[in-house]
Design a protein around this nucleic acid. Structure first.
Lengths: 295, 295
DNA sequence: TAAAAATACTCCATAGGTATTTTAT
DNA sequence: ATAAAATACCTATGGAGTATTTTTA
């Protein structure tokens, strides 16, 4: 049984005439008759009653015509669907993002992707810690991660997105609030607010390193889960924090940002599963790089 | 594009190995590779990424595998469905019936058919006048009619089912109630209850003929639409009626049936559309003839 | 280097064509 | 008598086989 049989049967059933059906199929009548007989033999069912004056469908033929049409349509649709997926116009993509980019880069990317690829099902998960994104990439609950450089990136393909400078977030009435810039040494003894899940946050590790280099201890006064909480805590005067520059899009009354000089900043990178052939991924990455190139 | 391409693709996608897939398909590996390439070329899409160590599905391939499986299953199912229909195990059949057989033969037939052919959708319509059944057969709202002989049966195929004797239905307190039999002449002047839609009822015409032969007039006192109404009217003493014998299964207190002698009775016939190939029809007719043969 | 897919070619099965016969109206 | 499907037979496309090369892990 081949699709040929279904195509031929549909033609004969629609034309109710072997000769005209053969014409429509650009073939001669005898091979058409043969193929129809072959189909009936294989099914073990008479689909058409033919006399020299009439060709009619049996009840089984009526049902089979309906099914054959649906099958042929399904074959076409399957092909078109595959093309759409290959072109990255249909599909699924879940993007993860660290806290600092959750409020600026992630929404911009979401907007760009949704307008460019309306038929793709996107998922966006902000405020994810970098190692959590790495494992989410491995277990395929994430396809693209916007995260910090990690020591172990086996199985992942990583590329630079941008370097983010560091800022110190301060209450407006803090003694450093009017400074043009600060150095790590200035932060000695300050009550720091850091991210919860300390061991897994790359920013936390970086802050500890910077303090260690300056022979300082980090005086942690609060741990918070989200960046939005962090800034409200600072505005309330509960402490200060070192944050990547994009966090500064979060404006809260009673809080100021002052650049932290003497540090190289921190890299934001894009990570994907090595060898992930999802064509939507390529488009999303291209769009991401465009976004960071034109600020 | 042929089903072969789908079958081969499914095999390779499931085995993730051209060699093993070829083995499973009882063919050599090179032609299998060729057919897969042909499929990809026709679709314009890469479905599989192959290295010498790994065969993997692209995202388009994943979707196409799913569709291909469904299409192949649909092809099988379409064939099986056609076989079921051809065997008369699946399908649709609507049976019509005149009033007198509505309460005995029709339910017996319904019971027999439903148990024999559980997957057939049956429709049963009782209390139908014979000419209405004939037109219902023509417009295909009926497939099998249990009716009286009609003058015009063009386009219909008719066969005898049984001959039904005639009875006179009387109130219990009627002066004829204890008679063993009656003759048409005895009914002179009696108030008769007949079927409504007088022109279209074959029983009505027969009663008029019988009275005319005996040089009598029919004294109509009531017209009713249904046999069940007829018997309640008679039990209430509103008149008498001539009915076919099967009507006597309707027992109502206060009413008796007395045979009407000197008449040949009336034929019940089965009518179908000429050339109706519905296999369920053949089964239903066979079952019907069995039923009337073993009373 | 070894396993597996791709290539190159050969062959034959069968889809499709041509000529003719059969059949039903 | 005629239109149309079936039959008989032939042709040739292309699906499948064998031998070999290429590729990559």
């Amino acid at each position: 049984m081949e699709l040929r049989h279904l195509r031929y049967f549909v033609a004969v059933a629609e034309q109710r005439h072997f000769g005209r059906a053969a014409e429509r199929l650009h073939m001669a009548q005898p091979p058409l008759s043969q193929q129809i007989r072959q189909l009936e033999a294989e099914l073990g069912v008479t689909l058409l009653t033919r006399t020299t004056r009439r060709v009619d469908l049996t009840p089984a033929g009526v049902a089979y015509l309906d099914d054959a049409r649906q099958i042929l349509a399904a074959v076409d649709e399957a092909g078109e669907n595959a093309v759409r997926i290959a072109a990255g116009r249909t599909g699924r993509l879940t993007v993860g993002c660290v806290g600092s980019a959750t409020y600026s880069l992630l929404p911009a990317l979401a907007k760009a992707l949704r307008s460019e690829l309306p038929d793709v099902e996107f998922g966006f998960r902000g405020e994810m810690l970098s190692p959590d994104q790495a494992s989410a990439l491995h277990d395929e609950s994430l396809d693209l991660g916007l995260l910090r450089r990690l020591p172990d990136t086996s199985g992942l393909s990583v590329q630079d997105v941008r370097r983010e400078r560091l800022l110190v977030a301060l209450p407006q009435d803090h003694r450093y609030a009017d400074r043009k810039r600060l150095r790590v040494a200035d932060l000695a003894g300050e009550g720091m607010i850091i991210h919860a899940g300390s061991g897994r946050s790359v920013m936390n590790s970086l802050i500890h390193e910077l303090f260690a280099e300056a022979d300082l201890e980090v005086n942690v006064v609060h741990e918070v889960a989200e960046t939005s909480t962090l800034v409200t805590f600072i505005a309330a005067g509960l402490g200060i924090a070192v944050v990547p520059e994009p966090t500064s899009v979060l404006h809260v009354p009673g809080m100021v940002y002052v650049p932290l000089a003497g540090t190289p900043g921190v890299d934001l990178v894009a990570a994907t599963r090595e060898g992930d052939a999802n064509p939507v991924l390529a488009r999303a990455l291209a769009r991401l790089m465009e976004l960071v190139a034109t600020p």
